[in-house]
């Protein structure tokens, strides 16, 4: 029987404390906290720090207090921004989803080396010693500093010795941009599948000597983009993605094939029977000879020459042209 007394006393102390805590948690309930944990659940919880706050919980707290924007989480993108907006009862203004791209594709096969490097396998270390081993002073060193910086495993050094971004995995957090000593990684809107894979500032003839896929500053891409979304700056074309320009003609005109199109196979244009032979599409097409036909008769598109830029779609008054085939349709063609 002696055992009963301690059991009863300790049990009742525990019971008393438990009930007390239960009542207290109801009475002293603070509403602010539940929102923070809900926001935290809506975040990717990768704790990448791209938002500028210490971890996802810090960001969630800042959002709940109104100090940070609901769309501040870059890896979470529009998905978590909308989820947070629902929790807070506001409408989220999400930026376009972005992805990182490496502006170089001159690897072992294309770009010449000028030295043998046996030091620390890190781009920054290699840059400090004589600015890297490549003849090109702006090319990717391929030692993987960006790969190690990526929290999402979205970067890798390909077999050609150049860093490439996996568009599926990239969240646009921008960590690789900060660590790249060459400063050849930048963010582009995900809807634009085309970017310039060269950062070389040298003049044409010089570039040709050490890289077969280097930009020679020929300005053909600038001429192929009448809206002026491409401009030359320090011997390198700069693509202005804010102008929502169609970069497909520019990419196809490049003689050095410096552009990278993430869409492997573009759909081709096709003219149907509504065509009345107005010939308006012929001068609009950036590829000479891709559209042929006599005035007043149905025109034909040469499938081998068509690059699928979709410019003719907007030109045709009869709406007789459409894009056929696999691959995503360029934004402007879709809007037409």
């Amino acid at each position: 029987m002696e055992i009963l007394l301690p059991i009863i006393i300790v049990g009742s102390v525990g019971l008393f404390l438990g009930i007390g805590l239960g009542i207290a948690s109801k009475k002293l309930h603070v509403n602010v906290d539940s929102r923070i944990s809900e926001i935290l659940n809506a975040l990717p919880n990768a704790n990448c720090g791209a938002c500028g706050y210490p971890g996802c919980s810090g960001f969630a707290k800042a959002v709940a207090e109104g100090k940070a924007s609901a769309s501040g989480c870059i890896p979470g993108g529009s998905k978590s921004a909308h989820a947070i907006a629902d929790i807070l009862g506001i409408t989220a203004s999400t930026g376009e989803p972005v992805m990182a791209v490496v502006h170089c594709k001159g690897g072992i096969a294309e770009a010449a080396e000028r030295a043998l490097y046996n030091g620390i396998q890190d781009c920054l270390a290699a840059t400090i010693i004589g600015n890297g081993t490549k003849e090109c002073q702006d090319g990717c060193l391929g030692l993987g500093t960006c790969v190690r910086a990526c929290p999402f495993d979205a970067l890798k050094i390909n077999q050609n010795g150049v860093a490439v971004v996996d568009p599926e995995k990239c969240t646009g957090c921008g960590k690789c941009i900060k660590v790249c000593p060459r400063k050849i990684i930048s963010l582009i809107p995900k809807v634009h599948k085309i970017f310039l894979a060269c950062s070389n500032h040298d003049r044409g003839g010089k570039v040709k000597k050490y890289c077969t896929v280097g930009c020679t500053a020929c300005t053909l891409c600038v001429k192929a983009t009448p809206s002026g979304a491409i401009s030359m700056e320090n011997n390198i074309p700069v693509l202005d993605y804010t102008k929502e320009e169609n970069f497909i003609p520019a990419a196809n005109k490049c003689p050095s094939k410096c552009f990278v199109d993430l869409v492997k196979k573009r759909p081709k244009a096709n003219i149907d029977t509504k065509c009345d032979g107005c010939t308006l599409c012929v001068p609009a097409c950036p590829i000479p000879g891709a559209i042929t036909g006599e005035t007043g008769k149905r025109h034909v598109i040469d499938k081998d020459k068509c690059i699928g830029c979709g410019i003719c779609l907007n030109i045709c008054p009869q709406h007789a042209i459409s894009l056929w085939g696999t691959g995503s349709i360029p934004k402007q063609a879709r809007m037409a």
Binding site: P6, I9, L17, L21
Partner: peptide, 29 residues
């Protein structure tokens, strides 16, 4: 009074843990 001082450790842990929880809730409020 009940002569169960030998249960000090267990009871104290219980009391301190509950107390800190309570204080935390009260402070937050």
């Amino acid at each position: 009074p009940f002569g169960i001082s030998y249960l000090q450790t267990i009871v104290f842990i219980l009391v301190i843990a509950a107390l800190v929880q309570l204080v935390e809730m009260a402070l937050q409020k």
